[in-house]
């Protein structure tokens, strides 16, 4: 009985441990969503050097799976008059 009373008193260390575990996880997930926006900006910058595209035409999606995650990149390029894209390189 004394022991259970003693244990009841110390909830702060439990709070601290739960927070440390939770925040380590949340920071890494949010870090990844930041990665998506960084990728989006950089992909856009690279493509814009060669082709004119609308900034909203680059879609980057990340799906997190248990073992692997997939990164889906979709870029809309307007149809151009002139030689096909492949031939300009």
């Amino acid at each position: 009985m004394m022991w259970s009373w003693f244990k009841r008193r110390n909830s702060a260390p439990v709070a601290r441990e739960r927070l440390q575990i939770l925040l380590a996880h949340e920071r890494s997930t949010l870090g990844r969503s930041n990665l998506v926006s960084v990728l989006q900006d950089e992909i856009l910058a690279v493509i814009s050097r060669h082709v004119f595209i609308d900034p909203d035409a680059v879609q980057v999606k990340m799906d997190r799976g248990a073992k692997i995650s997939t990164l889906e990149i979709e870029i809309e390029i307007p149809n151009m008059v002139g030689p096909p894209l492949a031939m300009t390189y």
Partner: peptide
């Protein structure tokens, strides 16, 4: 101080 609340250091 009694361990019932997160401390400043935590």
């Amino acid at each position: 101080a009694r361990g019932e609340m997160l401390g400043i250091a935590d």
